[in-house]
Write a protein that binds this DNA or RNA. Sequence first.
DNA 1: TATGAATGAGGTTTCATTCAT
DNA 2: AATGAATGAAACCTCATTCAT
Lengths: 190, 190, 190, 190
Amino acid sequence: MSRPRSDQRRTGILDAATRVIASRGLGAAATAAIAKEAGVSNGSLFLYFESKSTLLNELYVQLKAEVGDAAMADMPDQGSTRDLVRHMWKRWLRWATSNPEKRRTLAQLEVTDEISLESHELVRDGQRLMSELIERSRAGGPMKDEPVSFVLLVVGAIADTTMDVMIRDPDGADARSDAAFEAMWRVLAG
Amino acid sequence: MSRPRSDQRRTGILDAATRVIASRGLGAAATAAIAKEAGVSNGSLFLYFESKSTLLNELYVQLKAEVGDAAMADMPDQGSTRDLVRHMWKRWLRWATSNPEKRRTLAQLEVTDEISLESHELVRDGQRLMSELIERSRAGGPMKDEPVSFVLLVVGAIADTTMDVMIRDPDGADARSDAAFEAMWRVLAG
Amino acid sequence: MSRPRSDQRRTGILDAATRVIASRGLGAAATAAIAKEAGVSNGSLFLYFESKSTLLNELYVQLKAEVGDAAMADMPDQGSTRDLVRHMWKRWLRWATSNPEKRRTLAQLEVTDEISLESHELVRDGQRLMSELIERSRAGGPMKDEPVSFVLLVVGAIADTTMDVMIRDPDGADARSDAAFEAMWRVLAG
Amino acid sequence: MSRPRSDQRRTGILDAATRVIASRGLGAAATAAIAKEAGVSNGSLFLYFESKSTLLNELYVQLKAEVGDAAMADMPDQGSTRDLVRHMWKRWLRWATSNPEKRRTLAQLEVTDEISLESHELVRDGQRLMSELIERSRAGGPMKDEPVSFVLLVVGAIADTTMDVMIRDPDGADARSDAAFEAMWRVLAG
DNA sequence: TATGAATGAGGTTTCATTCAT
DNA sequence: AATGAATGAAACCTCATTCAT
């Protein structure tokens, strides 16, 4: 019938947005700049995304899902809880250091009020696997009586901080990662 | 030209900016809105601050200093390191829960690329006292060989997360604060 | 290239345009909206009409012809001039009240500068029958020495106003119609 | 204190809008075009008018008031009703022929759905004087039992049509005006 | 010094029209 | 012939900053 709407193009726009936000900041991420970076006309962007706001929200949800998937990928089906958490930790940080732009972009989106409550909920739903692992790990730790959501936020904050530092100074990345894991593990398991 | 004298006005503008950013978000913080909130004319704002960017940078540095001062105020000159850190922790979180708008604003400014490298350095300098306390505390912990700056960032991230959750749900504030302190202390002192 | 054949589609698009303009106003009548309302693809519209302007012009001419035809239909071949004019008047207004959307759309098109001089001339040509009737009627009236085109415009203006009021308040329609006919007749025949 | 907001500028913008709409049509009356025509910056327009819509509404109300004022100006305090109506008619048409652009613009604004109900009501209120004169005149005529608002609309329609024809062909203006007055008078007084 | 009017670049979004399928 | 994705030129409006008063 006609040229089919292309998933590649959609993805291309999201990728372009990631790059623009990472390099120039959210404040300078004009739709025109994103479209240009994606090699797409100004109007096409609005064919694939209803508004700039939906674009940002979808990008946020997708990136969050990507981190979550990366962290839980290839999870062994046996081993001590500590080993499982360590696996998660490694994958998590590896994703960040391999995708510094996505990490930077995510950090910016995390605080905007452009991101709707609904998107935040979608993200929470997608983190069920991580939540469950955290839940199991904290049994004997200092946060055993706190809401899981809070524990997850704290662990996430430590991870994010570690990522940022690792990205900024790749030489010390391994040392940072290991030390932070030990620290984080104590937060959970005491 | 020369610095205008009314410090009251300067402060008024900074306070207004805090309120506007906290309530409406950084994206909607037009200079006109800030001026209006401050009860000052549009143009006056630029007599006190060279540009919007300067204003935001000064606000950031000032708020960061305020948190630091609050955290280290009334520090007893003796007591175990743990007690000192506990003191810091309590003051720190109390400041945040007493100043939710400032906390919210700070969270927004933290990620903008509007904040210059210089401002970030200024902030680091102002945190010397905290740094030293952290330095002393971590001696036997899992992060004993990491750069202090990194440790400080991790501790700060835990604190910020705790603050945000406490502000969002004041009922559980005390439980959150205590549990997070124990967790944080393990990060430091193992 | 050559005229596409499906007259049904052509008509469907014109009808859709009528509906869209009547309900949403000429300013909101995007070609995409018209195509959608017609159940036809975006691009097809331009197979049937060279441009939006052509579409509007054709719609205008067609609607005007329709009113004219309706007004002169079933005209008896004898009777006093007054009876003939009365017949015309009745049919004219009946068409309008039976086709409020077409009437509304026509009112909008009447003033746009989108309508070309040529279209206006086409319309005038199509109103020859009405013109002749008016011509005969005004013999003894106050406008007996004016250009027929002017008289026709005046009569049309009275009719349009009456229609609009009738459509807006159907209860008083008959009273309006009768009174306005008497008034109009005096304009013609004094 | 500062440069005062200038009524001249406000008026200048309204005048510019009138000119642009009259010459290029409402569809081509971009705010940028209006601003340029007014010799004012793009942004200034929005300092004087909240939105394009308010600008158009104010223009409409103002022009309508102007016509009404013009029509009722210098009304003698005695004389037959017919003389008074004739006075109104003359002034009314004179205004239109002296202000062809305003007349054209008004014709365009009259049908837009950009004009709010409130504006239409404002206009109606401003036409009380005319209404009263019409009311008195129609006592023995064919429309004596119709709503005044309807009669006013009909008279207005005749006037508008006459104006348009007069403007288009100034040579026959006087003949048109006189004939149309006689016709209109019969509508009222039979 | 203080005011707020003035500026114009830039932002998001719409839409008539073209073109690949 | 038919589709609907693609285009890019506007359109309206905001806002940091300057400038007349």
